[in-house]
Amino acid sequence: MDNGRDFENLVAEYYEPLYQFAFSLTREEAGACDLVQQAFCVWAAKGHQLRDASKVKTWLFTTLHREFLGLRRRQTRFPHLELEFAGAELPVIEPVATSRLDTDLVLATLAALDEAHQAPVALFYLQDYSYKEIAEILGVPLGTVKSRLARGLERLHRLLTDQKVPPHQKPVSEEKDDL
């Protein structure tokens, strides 16, 4: 499938939803772009191994999520600098459009959830994936997805209703998933 035309069609079809998923996880444009690019890069190298063509979309989302988890592990090993020490190195960012403020709030609230709940909730809203598809993408059992969604959605809605979520609030630690 990796001839040039097929690849370009694949990018045209999936880069936008992949970016939405990546941005909902990272809340940062450059990081999201990198994740999307990396997902397609992995596809170009290994996509031919996928036998079921109907699974391409799921495969791309799974790959992107794995890349995200890998990136986060590396960031944990090499923690980022506090802003006050890195201010001179930061790029100039244009002011956020007013219409994005609500999206920013929703994503900040998502980031405040337990890490394990963030990806299923994002997929729940973004793509209308079935529970089974979300389970396939994230590589967890169906029951786990259902319980994570139930808890994640409940907390998300409660936090949004209260609207007390600071942008960098630490994730709330929650009880174990039901399997």
């Binding site: 880069y15 936008e16 970016y19 939405q20 909902s24 999206t103 994503l107 973004l126 809605h157």
Partner: peptide, 10 residues
């Protein structure tokens, strides 16, 4: 909430 998620554009 869904509308906010789907406002994300590449």
């Amino acid at each position: 909430v869904r509308q906010q998620f789907r406002k994300i554009t590449a």
